[in-house]
Structures are given as C-alpha cells and as structure tokens.
C-alpha cells in the first residue's frame, strides 16, 4: 500500500519540473519576455485611432475582434513553442534522462507529467497576455469572459498534447529548435483555427450559447480527445 499510484507519481514528476522552473526560471521568463515583445511589435503594426488608443482606425467591431483573436493565438502559439522546445532540456543536459526513465511509472504518466508542466507554463503566459491585451488594445470580453477562459483551456489541452509530443521527438534529433515548429505548426492548425474563431466570436459579444452552437466547439473537443490520447499512447516509442 505504501507504493504511490499513477496519479500521485505523475503529479510528483510535474511538481519536480515546476520546482526546477521556480529555482532556475529558464523557461517561463523567456516565454513571458517573448510574449511581451511580440505583443508590443503587434501593437506597433496597428494604425492608431485619434484618441491614441491602439485599436484599428476605421474598422468595425467584428474586424477588431478577428484581428485581436488572431494576434492573441499567434502570440501564444509561438511563445508556447519557445517554451515547449525545452521540455527535455534539463534531463538531457544533465544526463538525468536515464533516471527519469527508471521511475516505475507507465510512459504515458511521464508524458502526462511533462504535458502538465507545459500546460502550467502556457496558462501563466495567457494569464499575463489577456490583461496585456485589455491594456494595450482595450479588449473587452465582458460577459464572454467565462466562456473565453473555457475556450482558452480547451485550445491549451490540444496545443500542449501535440507540443509536448513533438518536443520530445525534436529533443531526440540534432536540431530541436528547427524541427519542432516544422512538425507542430501544421498539426496544430485545426485547433488554432477553432480557437481564433471562437475567441473572435466571444470578443465581438458572443455568449456561452453561441459558443455551443458553433461547430468549432466540436472540432476543439475532437482534437483534444483524439490527439491527446494518441500522443499519450505513442509517446513510449519516442524515448528509448
């Protein structure tokens, strides 16, 4: 009975990764810095309105919503890939990968642990980016805020599943920073199309009802379930 279960061991490994990050701060800080810089650059690309607000001059509310939703998810996508590329960095640099593989835990548990750590990172980045958008682009989600958080979390699940899997594939090759986006970007297109469309609906004043009616919602859940399960299953073949 003393042996901890699957969930306990998985969470233990996630806690280990988060503790390393809290002490070393070499993944989250670059991700946040990247996010901030990209958002500023995006803000400079938009024409200002007369009262010096960074909205789009002369554009309708739906166009603004479309553009902001696209900005938000592209920033998250690249910030995520910057961070996920480091998924097995510490283990490989310090030769700790063998000890990690010796943990008496199914490989899907190891995948889950890494994915949960990456999920934590990306949620923190989003918690930073969303207020930044309110500040810089006067984004107003209003009553759509709760469904917006739901959409963000659903996109995150698919993003993290594919990102973590391909990051561990990339870690096994000679050029990990190069191959990760090449593999992950095409695979992530559906989840991001769905995310951008739903986010733009919600920013433009949609509510929970419109969210459920949109077919995108089904795409998002199908992507999360199919690719989440597949990624957890094939992960054991990546590390050997």
């Amino acid at each position: 009975m003393g042996e901890p279960g699957f969930v306990a061991k998985t969470l233990l490994l996630t806690r280990k990764d988060l503790r390393i990050e809290m002490r070393a701060r070499d993944t989250l800080v670059p991700m946040l810095a990247f996010t901030f810089a990209v958002t500023l650059l995006l803000a400079f690309t938009l024409p200002t309105t007369g009262d010096n607000e960074r909205a789009i001059a002369g554009a309708s509310a739906t166009t603004v919503a479309d553009v902001l939703a696209g900005f938000f998810w592209i920033t998250i996508l690249f910030a995520g890939l910057v961070g996920f590329a480091r998924t097995f960095e510490t283990e490989q640099a310090e030769g700790a990968i063998d000890s990690l593989l010796l943990v008496p835990l199914d490989r899907s548990g190891l995948f889950l642990a890494k994915a949960l750590a990456n999920l934590t990172f990306i949620v923190i980045v989003e918690a930073f980016l969303l207020p930044l958008f309110v500040l810089l682009f006067t984004l107003d989600a209003g009553p759509g805020l709760v469904p917006l958080v739901l959409v963000i979390l659903l996109v995150d699940v698919g993003f993290v599943a594919v990102g973590t899997l391909f990051a561990s594939v990339a870690a096994q090759t000679s050029s990990r920073e190069l191959i990760l986006p090449v593999l992950a970007l095409p695979a992530l297109i559906p989840v991001f199309i769905a995310g951008v469309d739903l986010t733009s609906d919600l920013i433009a004043g949609g509510s929970f009802g419109t969210l459920v009616e949109a077919g995108w919602f089904g795409v998002l859940i199908a992507f999360d379930v199919i690719l989440g399960i597949t990624a957890a299953l094939v992960f054991e073949f990546v590390l050997e």
Partner: peptide
C-alpha cells in the same frame, strides 16, 4: 520518431478537413 509523426499527422487530417 518518423512513425510517431506519421501516425499523428494522419489522424490530424480528418480533423483539419472538418475544421
């Protein structure tokens, strides 16, 4: 590694199509 990508890539196709 390629087999892993081959499997995930192919499963992605129907989702892309619907999306």
């Amino acid at each position: 590694l390629a087999a892993v990508v081959g499997i995930v890539g192919f499963l992605d196709v129907p989702i892309v199509h619907f999306s």
